[in-house]
Design a protein around this nucleic acid. Sequence first.
DNA 1: ATCGGGCATGACAACGTTGTCATAAGACAA
DNA 2: TTGTCTTATGACAACGTTGTCATGCCCGAT
Lengths: 330, 330
Amino acid sequence: MRDVAAQARVSLKTVSRVVNGESGVSPRLARRVLAACERLDYRHNHTASTLRRSNRRSATIGVVLEDVSNPFSSALHRAIEDVAVQRGVLVLAGSSDEDEDRERRLVLAFASRRVDGLIIQPSSHDHRYLLTERKAGTALVFVDRPPASIEADAVLTDNAAGVRRGVQHLVAHGHRRIGYLGDTHTIATAGDRHRGYLDGLANQRIEADERLIRLDLHGIEKAEAATRELLEQSNPPSALLTGQNLITIGAFRALRRMGLHQRIALLGFDDILLADLLEPGITVIAQDPAGIGRMAADVLFRRLDGDRSPAQSHTVPTRMIARGSGEIPP
Amino acid sequence: MRDVAAQARVSLKTVSRVVNGESGVSPRLARRVLAACERLDYRHNHTASTLRRSNRRSATIGVVLEDVSNPFSSALHRAIEDVAVQRGVLVLAGSSDEDEDRERRLVLAFASRRVDGLIIQPSSHDHRYLLTERKAGTALVFVDRPPASIEADAVLTDNAAGVRRGVQHLVAHGHRRIGYLGDTHTIATAGDRHRGYLDGLANQRIEADERLIRLDLHGIEKAEAATRELLEQSNPPSALLTGQNLITIGAFRALRRMGLHQRIALLGFDDILLADLLEPGITVIAQDPAGIGRMAADVLFRRLDGDRSPAQSHTVPTRMIARGSGEIPP
DNA sequence: ATCGGGCATGACAACGTTGTCATAAGACAA
DNA sequence: TTGTCTTATGACAACGTTGTCATGCCCGAT
């Protein structure tokens, strides 16, 4: 900037004014400054600017996802990015891998870069460590899973309602013995879905049978093995409800291997790419990651714009997509 | 920091030393400083530190992807992140959507945040605009597609070789009439794959037949329509080679709709999630996005560590995964 | 007692920018 | 002419940190 000022024979401040598009610079000087910027390939140093400016905004937000490469998380990421670019805001993204410690380290690293806001898909179960950032004015929104021990905005899928709806769908197709395969019970959403399953059965006046329930299945392999077990017992279920997309894949794989994929109904929570090309197509209760991400970013920026209303939890509805596997009769 | 210094009754510089783990501070003072940090919830301001430090490193890199939510790009992203976190480096990511202008705007936004390096999956065909950043010392690595009009490191899939191998595979299974469905010809990788197809045929002494080739198919729908056309003509191909994963999906969908999925061989470039669960499983020439990302990050950090050797283009091999569709006889 | 050397600590300037305020130049009225 | 007001411009400090260098202290050798 000093070089530009010298080249244009003006003061630093005038260059600053031109670069920031402030009014009150004569067109003649402005032209000279712009020409000098061009000639010297001047790049505005946004970080130095942030340091000095009164609003202190870095025009950067941090996003902590479970894994940037998993389809759900990356759809969130993209939706957040789309809202952010419209405001000229960049996105720092990181993966927590379901590890509390990594989540925390990421947040601290973001904080030391002075991000304006944080969107977190949390893995941890105590978010008091975020109080400091909050006090420093960092906006904070939780996605997919609720905050714990801290009041903050959240954007969540209505997991329980979605699963209840799934149970109802299977019952409507004649099923009474409905198995459930769920993810690690410490994950909040997994708990909600399990609860939805139990409530759904209760609504339909069906007694839950412990032998049809398998929890803490993380990953395709475990789900596949559990499905196998479930179906090999005497008096097996006629339908399966799976609480997460990898579990759905594992269950489908098991059904295929056992030659039961056209006989046992399967209804999965969370959509799967290509589910429509399988035989049968897989019926799912689809979440709307893009909708969640967009809303989370909207809430975040509303806070950054000065919204001081009490923290609120927003719910995004699910959508049932019938493709065949969920409509197989008992 | 000033508050911490006051609280610990030391100078600013001493706090700085403790925070940065520099030697030469008596344990007694260090303890006092750390206690004060703790008590005041002090967060080191990494951006101010970058501004002043002699190496000027922001410990942040920028990654421009085609779309952070597409499986290939997000796998790249994750692999890059994994290398970066090991060095305490954060990743700014953005989507160019195959748009030259968005790519450029992202790069400039990253540059004004003074990222240490850039990893770009380019959409544009002239990268001279990056010369300024390069001159400023920003490390630069291209992934998936080669740089144009600039010398820079690149990490690429060996597209042509992969496709040649695919042709050979189909011929080995008895095919002579092999159709080709390719993506937009202006995308460098699409051109390479098309060339690989033609070379592969030539190697096998098969004359290319224009009527079996369809290019510029971007997205599932166009691919599906083109596949249909290709198969409805007289003397149709007995095998299809598809040059991109969405095209493979479109082609498979068309085959399914026409009831030909067990009759016409299909070999796709780029792997597809769940391809093994379809019937038949889809044979693919798989790329290794994680391998590409890791290598790109390695090259980038080697440059940041001072490697001044001439720019180099690295090639990551493909892997053929036979799952059934590519082994259907004519 | 004096000196030299090593070590812990701090004062101060600087990084690239912008907020604040002062000043110069010009326009216009009295 | 003088005075007042407006507008364009610049000088200077400050943002939170670290590099440089000076200072003061203690220790051991002379």
